[in-house]
Nucleic acid binder design. Structure first.
Length: 690
DNA sequence: GTAGGGTTAG
């Protein structure tokens, strides 16, 4: 080997190993890419681009970047590739999930009459995982033909290939025939069961593995922890944690990811954060696990804080980070934050990513701007069914029923077929706009599209019929359901009964809810309010007693409003705000103007055990009113107020805010637990349906 | 040079 080729070889090795570092900044990545270009030029200039040994190294270096085309170009320069070079290029295609690529190269290899070795099969079988079972079986045959029928490496790959096809029974047959099972064989079958939604079987196999005295390594434990996460068995999950510690693997970066994910998925975000913080340099997946853990469990602001930290530290983010951050933005509900996220993304490489844009549409809709949601929707070139559905759902949340249906028709004209999510959006739109006939018809069109309704669709219909006052029809509909009605379905009936003061059916719904979901405070409050609206005070007292016996307290309402980038949260009668004096003065002024305008609150629907003055006091101090008053005193006249409330809008506040919107001449947008209300000129966009 | 795992919109 000449001195030049030796130095190039060293250079390529260092380049590849440097690239495998887990967390690199985008700046570092671009520098290294330039480096790769320079090396290739040197290879060509020195005529060494035909040297198989160096080309393998170069191909590997390219593949670290995912630059398969570059690798392929280098490969083609070699006139008679040997097995290692074929393997390198097949491996590269397989790693990058290029559909058909590895298989095509494998075929080319056979045409060139180069015999595959066991390495070849590892890569080809990995690539088969995403294609057809028939092809997989064919390659399975080849492994025997070329003498690898009992090679444990090749057989392990077969186990995971069959698992990826969803054929766990075939995977199990291969696994059962294996004589010398390694920890990898066990992990392959365990993760196969996890991937195919059978965590119980996975855990059974793990127990067997332990009985066979096979010591689990960190990858095995990662699979097992996923299984525990899926069976929702936290007690057992903790014992795995114990095993991890015993084996001294608790600082293994990928184990930390699994622990973080396992605890975050349970909502134990503080525990998850403990593991995250223990890592000096968390990798991208760990950042993502923590951010999405926060976002999914209602800790939107924490998620955003972490996302901003990543950016300020110049850590590379990917589309999953973006989606998790956007999900968090949707939860926080601040339009200011939403536009910041959108602005950040429009300057990033993910600006055309359909998944990211779908999340943006959803976020804008949930942050109260259906207009901006539509702007994002319109700028996406290739709209898939999920994007259309997100936009339809956005209109639904805002009660723009007709607009949702119009968009649905447009979607069909564009040749996109609806899926179950599309119908959830449509039915939500109909129920939020009181479009009973349209919703009913759409529901019955679902089978024409080959879609079977599930719980959410059924509960939309119950809601749709119930709110319109067709309570008996809603009940008959529930009785005729082909699947067992669940919490959402009975919950929809109960809240409709509350609106229409239908005690008999309401009690039936509540009974079911107390069985299915006994610790949800909301159901008890609904039933109590239903009794109060019918003046059945003894019944109200009984429900309250049931709640006390079960140790349940009424959920406290709170509302947030963002002013100049700072999010302020108010509770009932909250006097902790620094500008509290001004806020209550404004509330007083509003109260007087409301009375002058003829506003009288409904007393029946609130807690019965308060006296008249207390009721009125509580009503005026509800969290949404405090947020409105604060918005009025701290923004310029005419500014739109955007408020988020954790519970459903209260009937009295709803009617009061309608009038307030006219009195102060402002648009007030409130996102409650279920939908949006746009108050303007004395009316609300929900048309009093909610 | 060997395989197995983890984050994932509606």
């Amino acid at each position: 080997m000449s001195l030049h080729s030796f130095s190039l070889s060293l250079l390529l090795s260092s380049l590849s190993s440097a690239l495998s570092k887990s967390t690199i900044t985008s700046h570092e990545a671009s520098l290294r890419r330039k480096h790769l270009d320079q090396v290739y030029v040197q290879l060509i200039v020195s005529g060494l681009h035909k040297c198989r040994y160096l080309v393998i190294k170069f191909v590997n270096a390219c593949l670290h970047f995912g630059d398969v085309n570059y690798a392929h170009k280098a490969f083609c320069e070699v006139s008679e590739p040997d097995i290692p070079l074929w393997n390198a290029i097949i491996k590269g295609y397989a790693q990058k999930n290029i559909v058909g690529g590895p298989i095509r190269m494998y075929m080319d290899m056979q045409i060139s009459q180069v015999h595959p070795n066991c390495f070849t099969f590892l890569y080809v079988l990995k690539a088969c995982g995403g294609t057809s079972v028939e092809l997989g079986k064919q390659i399975h045959g080849h492994t025997f033909k070329y003498g690898f029928g009992s090679n444990v490496f090749v057989q392990n790959s077969l186990v995971s290939m069959y698992a990826k096809f969803g054929q766990t029974s075939s995977a199990r047959i291969v696994f059962d025939k294996l004589h010398d099972r390694t920890v990898v064989s066990w992990t392959s079958i365990i993760s196969g069961y996890v991937q195919n939604g059978d965590p119980m079987e996975a855990l059974k196999v793990f127990k067997e593995m332990r009985q066979c005295n096979v010591k689990p390594d960190w990858i095995a434990l990662v699979s097992v922890m996923t299984a525990y996460t899926d069976v929702e068995d936290m007690g057992q999950g903790k014992s795995i944690h114990g095993l991890v510690t015993k084996l001294g693997l608790e600082f293994e970066p990928d184990i930390v990811i699994s622990l973080t994910t396992m605890y975050a998925k349970r909502g134990l975000v503080e525990v998850a954060r403990f593991f995250f913080d223990r890592m000096e340099k968390p990798n991208l997946i760990l950042w993502n696990a923590m951010i999405s853990g926060y976002a999914k469990n209602g800790y939107g602001e924490e998620a955003i804080k972490l996302f901003r930290e990543m950016i300020s530290k110049n850590i590379r983010v990917d589309s999953i980070t973006m989606r998790s951050a956007i999900l968090a933005g949707a939860q926080v509900g601040s339009l200011e934050l939403a536009t910041w996220l959108d602005g950040y993304i429009s300057k990033s490489e993910y600006r055309d990513d359909t998944f990211v844009n779908t999340a943006l549409v959803d976020m804008y809709a949930k942050c109260g701007s259906i207009y901006l949601a539509r702007c994002v929707f319109d700028r996406v070139a290739n709209k898939d069914v999920v994007l259309w559905s997100a936009m339809i759902m956005g209109y639904g949340l805002h009660g723009h029923g007709q607009e949702a249906i119009r968009l649905y028709n447009e979607m069909k004209q564009a040749g996109v077929s609806p899926n179950d999510g599309t119908f959830i959006g449509l039915l939500t739109a109909c129920k939020n706009s009181g479009l009973v006939k349209e919703g009913w018809e759409l529901f019955h069109q679902m089978p024409n599209h080959g879609i079977e309704p599930h719980h959410q669709h059924y509960s939309c219909i119950v809601d749709l019929l119930g709110r319109a006052g067709y309570l008996n029809q809603a009940y008959d509909f529930i009785m005729s359901m082909p699947i067992k009605p669940g919490v959402t379905v009975w919950g929809a009936l109960l809240s409709a009964c509350k609106i229409h003061r239908e005690v008999r059916l309401g009690e039936i719904a509540a009974q079911q809810l107390f069985i299915l979901d006994p610790y949800n405070t909301g159901h008890y409050v609904q039933l109590s309010n239903l009794y109060a609206s019918a003046h059945l005070w003894t019944h109200v007292a009984n429900v309250r007693l049931m709640m006390t016996q079960k140790g349940l307290n009424k959920d406290l309402g709170h509302s947030s409003i963002e002013i100049n980038g700072s999010l302020e949260t108010f509770h009932v009668g909250d006097r902790s705000h620094p500008r509290s004096k001004e806020i209550f003065e404004e509330l007083d002024r509003l109260e007087k103007r409301l009375k002058a305008a003829g506003y009288v609150p409904h007393m029946e629907s609130v807690l019965h055990d308060l006296n008249h003055e207390e009721i009125e006091e509580t009503l005026c101090n509800h969290s949404e009113r405090l947020a409105v008053a604060y918005g009025i005193v701290s923004t310029a006249p005419g500014t739109t107020l955007r408020i988020t409330k954790n519970l459903r809008a209260c009937v009295n506040c709803h009617s009061a805010i309608k009038i307030i919107s006219k009195l102060v001449d402002r648009e007030i947008i409130i996102r409650d637990a279920k939908r949006f209300h746009h108050f303007k000129d004395g009316v609300c966009s929900c048309g009093d349906f909610w």
